[in-house]
Design a protein around this nucleic acid. Structure first.
Lengths: 158, 158
DNA sequence: GTCAGTGCAAACTTTTTGCAACTAC
DNA sequence: GTAGTTGCAAAAAGTTTGCACTGAC
């Protein structure tokens, strides 16, 4: 993640902490930086490892506390998928759409104006929309190819 | 859930087990029936409780194994939300859209032709679409009203 | 100096696993 | 009879909590 984004989210965190009378601890900023140094989806474990590599030790509790804070500020999103819990830095994009392969678990972000539009258009009853998360499940081309190959093999056997 | 649906899903399970050389154990059918006796979202715990009420004891392992089986057959969907993990009976409707209140956690199913259409229209790269799950986050009218009342109160104080 | 925040370890929740016993086929 | 399944208990994974200590303000 580039430095400009990092300084922007740092700014968001700073002003949130200040206006709410919370403390600007080095841990929070170190964790935020580590989060925005990840590419794509990552686990709590990976954040911890990166921090250690940078010689910054934090406790599990602090790590989870900070992630919960970032989650509330929507500086990260959390995905609790079949393969486990993953986080993702998400500054400035509130709604998200992913395609997930049900065979290998590979997850890719999808950008679709049509879907955005459709959600926008949809009127919900007794509800004020804020943002959405969508998971489109299916089979990626790699797994599809494997399946096809498999089937051919089995047919030859018979 | 009505009896017709129950017998249909039982049928689906039966034929799956038969064609795959798996066993039609009483546990599997008891659990499936309990799942389809729930209304709306439910937890593993609730399924267990209903089974106990019916004098049918199953181990945790069997419960989870069966749910995993039903998940694969798409007789249930699993939601791993902030408030915990919930399951939902879902025969014959593959894609799902929910509105979730980020304040009280209330979840309601949304039926939107527009969204279905939009997903249908969206072309994904190197991916064969199957079904989707969408969560629209926001604030429900009840919580919205509470917030508004709260604000008025605070303004009066000042 | 004060209190929010941290580290630590233990607790807790949820889910999985290994193994012996059981049973559907 | 023989695998596929189950029950049990222990383990694993993921997350929270209580408490003493620390450090940002």
């Amino acid at each position: 993640m580039n430095e400009k984004v990092k300084s922007t989210v740092e700014q968001i965190l700073t002003s949130y902490l200040e206006t709410n009378g919370l403390r600007k601890t080095p841990e929070r900023f170190a964790i935020l930086d580590a989060v925005y140094s990840q590419s794509g989806q990552f686990t709590i474990e990976q954040v911890d490892k990166l921090l250690l590599k940078r010689n910054f030790r934090v406790s599990r509790a602090t790590l989870y506390n900070s992630m919960r804070l970032f989650l509330a500020l929507r500086l990260v999103v959390r995905h609790r998928l079949a393969g486990g819990t993953f986080y993702e830095a998400c500054y400035a994009s509130n709604s998200h759409c992913y395609q997930i392969c049900t065979l290998c678990g590979k997850t890719t972000i999808v950008r679709s104006g049509e879907i955005n539009e459709a959600v926008e258009q949809t009127r919900l009853r007794r509800f004020h929309k804020d943002y959405y998360t969508m998971y489109i499940y299916g089979v990626c081309s790699t797994c599809l190819a494997k399946q096809t190959r498999m089937r051919r093999k089995n047919q030859k056997k018979e």
